[in-house]
Structures are given as structure tokens and as C-alpha cells.
Design a protein around this nucleic acid. Structure first.
Lengths: 144, 144
DNA sequence: AGGCGACTGTTATATAATAACATAATGACT
DNA sequence: AGTCATTATGTTATTATATAACAGTCGCCT
């Protein structure tokens, strides 16, 4: 999916959910899209400053948090970063594979798995929040 | 397992692996054991300072990194914290459940599961590092 | 117009982690 | 014992990540 159609889909997605993809938020989303794979908040901040002059951390963090909340981005805790979600429209449980070498990200659907996972945790009385799982490793390209 | 036998087991573990559980590292491990669940590096630092006077972040981080490397602790990225590993002796693939309410941690074995997960990732040519998975949610006690 | 709610701007600060270099302890070898 | 290399720890400073708190703005509703 190219950036334009992604952004259009994101617009629709927000409309459906009754939330506002404002100019700023859309701008931040575009900045994230400019990069392959995982992007850091302060990288986005730098990009924003380059295009717009001054900008402070909260501006970026608030927008990123919004985008995560709407399912448009995932937060990658292990790397203190963010990555675009490629299947925000389907109700999915993604498994996010992050390459340690190149930083690129692959998101595969693992709904059946994570469903089973949920059963395991429920067996011990633990109610896990819906979330995406993340694995780090080495991708096909870098592994060769 | 109580703290004393845990520490004794940790000693053995390190001996077997040919690495040194020095006084400092052991001390840090004890400090982590003092807490239930997830502990933060700066909390450990504060504990250490209380007992020993001055101490700087690298002292703590280095020890924590060592303990993670030896499998005695897990790093909990989502919370910027650390938690003791309760099964460092068996070669396990743990699934770590962190309660958002109380911060307590439950580690269950999910080897079969994570083995299957590995197959899925290999199918797309991704070689995932051995790692423990972590889920956040609400534990039995807090859920009631 | 006025007021409400949301979004955004701004300043300051809290929290987390590491770089770089100095010193000390350990162990191997002669 | 002496020396050398290696590992571990101490120390200072800095970088990186994230949030608190408050001020201003904008759109929208009545």
C-alpha cells in the first residue's frame, strides 16, 4: 500500500471511529511513513522541526499516542519506537517482527496463535489486554 | 522458593556457566528479590545508596545487564523494569504476565507455544532470537 | 456573544540509559 | 614476587526518552 492510499484509509478509519485525524496528527503520521520500520519519537520531532520550525516533545508524543490508540501505529517498547500498522482495518492480532540489523519491520497475522495464547493465560486467571506481540531477530534479507 | 535458596541456586548457576556472581552483583540481585514483581533500575539504585552510600547508575545497570545475560532476571521493556526469573535452571521459554494494577509478575512456561511461534516466524524467513514474551493485563487477584 | 471541550503550544522537569575515562581486583605466566 | 592482560567497579558527565503543568487557540453548540 502506498502512502497516499494509506493516508486515505487512515482518514476513513478515523471517521468511522468518530475521532479526528487533525492536520498535525496526519502530519506526524506522514513523517512516520517516510521511514522504513521503527521510528523514534525524537526522530519524528527532528523531522517536524525541520519542516515547521519549533516544536516540543509533547506535540509529538501526543500525536503518536493518539495514533497508537487508533491502531494506526504500534509502539515498539523494546526499541522505544513506533511503527506503522499495516492492517488497522481488519480486526487483527499482529505479530511484529523487528530486524535487529536493518530495523525493518514485518507484521504477520497470528490471530489463531494469540487466541490460543489467551486461553493459556486465562487458565491462570490472567486477563491479558489485547495487544500485539513483538519479536526481535534477524530478517530474511539480513540473514542471507 | 525463598530468597536464600534462590541465591544459592543462582550461585550454582553462575558457577556452571563459568561466570562470576560477585559481591556487587549478588547484592543487586538481593535488592531485586526484596521487591515483588517489577523493579526499576533507579529504584534499585536508591536501595543501594541507602545501604552503601554513594552509587551511580552505571554500577546498577551493569549488574542488571549481567544478571539478565545470565538468565537470572528478565527485562520488562514495556515497563522499563526488571523482574527475577523463577526458572533459570530449566531451559525454558517463559511467558511473563505482568499485572498493570499491582505490578506483580507471574511467569508461566509456554515452551510448546513459543516453539510453534518460532515455526511461524521461520516460515517467513525470520530468525527470532530466543526471548521471553511478555503480556500486560490484570491478574486474578486484582480482577476479582 | 459566550462558554465548553478538544487540540495544540510552551516551559520546565522527571525518568531512563549510556559514554568515556579512571581505578582496582583478579588470574595467568614467567 | 613481578608484570601483564583481563575483568570488574568507580566516577563524572551527558544523552535519550517521556511527562507534568499551565496557557492559549480553535471549532462548535446554544
Amino acid at each position: 500500500m502506498n502512502k497516499q492510499s494509506y493516508l486515505a484509509a487512515a482518514e476513513r478509519h478515523c471517521l468511522l471511529r468518530g475521532c479526528k485525524l487533525t492536520t498535525l496528527r496526519r502530519h506526524i503520521l506522514e513523517l512516520v511513513l517516510e521511514h522504513d520500520g521503527v521510528v523514534k519519537a525524537y526522530q519524528v520531532l527532528a523531522d517536524l522541526q525541520r519542516e515547521r520550525g519549533v516544536a516540543a516533545p509533547p506535540t509529538v508524543y501526543r500525536a503518536l499516542d493518539f495514533l497508537v490508540e487508533q491502531g494506526l501505529l504500534h509502539k515498539v517498547d523494546a526499541l522505544n519506537g513506533f511503527v506503522v500498522c499495516s492492517h488497522f482495518e481488519c480486526n487483527h492480532h499482529g505479530l511484529i517482527l523487528v530486524c535487529e540489523m536493518c530495523g525493518r519491520v514485518e507484521e504477520i497475522d497470528a490471530s489463531h496463535f494469540l487466541g490460543a495464547l489467551q486461553e493459556v493465560t486465562e487458565a491462570v486467571g490472567f486477563e491479558s489486554r489485547e495487544q500485539n506481540l513483538l519479536l526481535t531477530g534477524v530478517c530474511k534479507a539480513c540473514h542471507a
